[in-house]
Design a protein around this nucleic acid. Structure first.
Lengths: 150, 150
DNA sequence: TTAAGTGCAAATTATTTGCAGTAAG
DNA sequence: CTTACTGCAAATAATTTGCACTTAA
């Protein structure tokens, strides 16, 4: 693979990413504005799940040469959550993480770097869970496995 | 039980609470300053576990007629965590909860009121958990059961 | 006496909001 | 066109910090 070919591939990937981003927005009925497509293609462009903070996504979109304000990143992530495209996860009171995987699944939190990754949900088996007190129902069960580098 | 007796009991309770608070501080080698004893006796004075935020503890200590600044409440809670007297729990990015129960145990988070309570740990049974990736070890497993009033 | 602890106000950090301009349907 | 969206700068909320003063040991 030559440099040339690689660049071509990059362009194709980027086109595909944008297309995926746009489709993703369309499924939720959100307008595909320039900013949203830029953010969406970073989030779901390669079909992988992502865990981002507003800051990290803001940095990523800027690295890509796109101009999107931080406030818009915040508002957009919140909009994505509201329509169910993403889930918000809170781990260490300081910042919120946004996850493109909206299924209930456990997370690894790396204490040293402050990053969040998916933990394999097949490897988590909860056989019994405290029942909700009267008048309440379980909305979700958040499992965060905190990791310490050894 | 007359009112009189009740008041006497209150005084006794308060004395006992302070004593427990002081002992609790002593076990961690922390100086029993006026402020710390006031906070500690609210936290462990009756032998029950407590879940507080800096704000709620600040309000409680003021209701008791004690003068402790909010910054000191924050610093003190952090000091208690550092020496292992309490654990910090983060649930919804906006505020930190501090728990006098330092054992690993699940929590209920009431979405409507934003309060945190203990969930019975006997009722939680996790039989399999994702193993830590290479080079890492599990520091703790946080389980938060989010409750929605129905 | 002296290092640890405290209080205040200012600083920081993460996030939200008001509002005037811009663009998608 | 017209309503949703965006950008900026200012506002807010939770928490931390610098520093002079106080107090437990």
């Amino acid at each position: 693979m030559t440099k040339q070919a690689s660049v071509q591939t990059d362009n194709h990937d980027s086109d595909r990413a944008q297309q995926r981003g746009s489709e993703w927005l369309a499924t939720a009925g959100l307008r595909p504005t320039r900013q949203r497509v830029a953010l969406a293609s970073l989030l779901v462009g390669d079909g992988e799940h992502r865990h981002v903070t507003a800051e990290s996504l803001y940095a990523a979109v800027h690295d890509n040469g796109e101009r999107v304000s931080l406030a818009t990143v915040y508002n957009t992530l919140r909009a994505f959550c509201e329509v169910g495209l993403m889930h918000e996860i809170t781990v260490d009171g300081t910042k919120s993480y946004f996850d493109t995987n909206t299924h209930d699944h456990p997370h690894f939190f790396w204490e040293d770097s402050g990053t969040l990754t998916d933990a394999p949900s097949e490897e988590l088996e909860i056989v019994r869970i405290p029942k909700a007190p009267d008048g309440a129902e379980i909305a979700s069960v958040d499992v965060v496995i905190r990791l310490r580098r050894k």
